[in-house]
Computed example of a mutant assay.
Amino acid sequence: MRILVAEDHRILLDSLALLLQSIDGIEVVSKHVNGQQVLNALELDDNIALVVSDLQMPVMGGIDLTLQLRQRFPQIKICLLTVADQPDTIKEAIRAGADGYVLKSAERSELENALNTIARGSKYYSEQVLMLLANDTKLEFVPDIDNPQKIAITKRELEVLQLIAQEYSGTEIAKKLFIEASTVETHRKHLIQKLGVQTTIGLVKYAIKFKIV
Score class of each variant (00 low, 15 high):
155 K>H: 10
139 L>M: 02
149 Q>K: 15
149 Q>G: 10
129 V>C: 05
173 I>N: 04
162 Q>Y: 01
121 G>F: 11
151 I>K: 13
159 E>F: 01
142 V>H: 09
116 N>I: 03
128 Q>A: 14
121 G>S: 12
144 D>S: 11
126 S>C: 14
154 T>D: 04
133 L>W: 07
139 L>R: 12
148 P>W: 02
155 K>A: 12
160 V>N: 00
171 T>P: 01
157 E>H: 12
138 K>T: 04
139 L>Y: 07
124 Y>M: 08
173 I>Q: 03
155 K>T: 15
116 N>T: 00
149 Q>A: 15
128 Q>Y: 14
141 F>Y: 11
147 N>K: 13
154 T>K: 08
174 A>W: 00
119 A>L: 14
125 Y>C: 07
132 L>Y: 09
142 V>M: 09
162 Q>V: 03
138 K>Y: 07
163 L>D: 05
120 R>D: 10
134 A>C: 04
138 K>W: 05
134 A>F: 00
172 E>P: 04
133 L>M: 09
173 I>S: 03
118 I>N: 13
168 Y>N: 08
159 E>S: 14
157 E>A: 13
138 K>M: 01
144 D>I: 09
130 L>Y: 04
131 M>W: 08
122 S>I: 01
139 L>S: 12
164 I>C: 07
159 E>V: 01
123 K>Y: 02
174 A>S: 06
152 A>R: 12
131 M>K: 10
168 Y>S: 13
122 S>R: 07
166 Q>V: 00
149 Q>E: 15
134 A>S: 02
157 E>V: 10
156 R>F: 08
151 I>P: 02
132 L>F: 04
126 S>I: 13
173 I>E: 09
145 I>H: 07
165 A>S: 12
168 Y>H: 12
171 T>A: 05
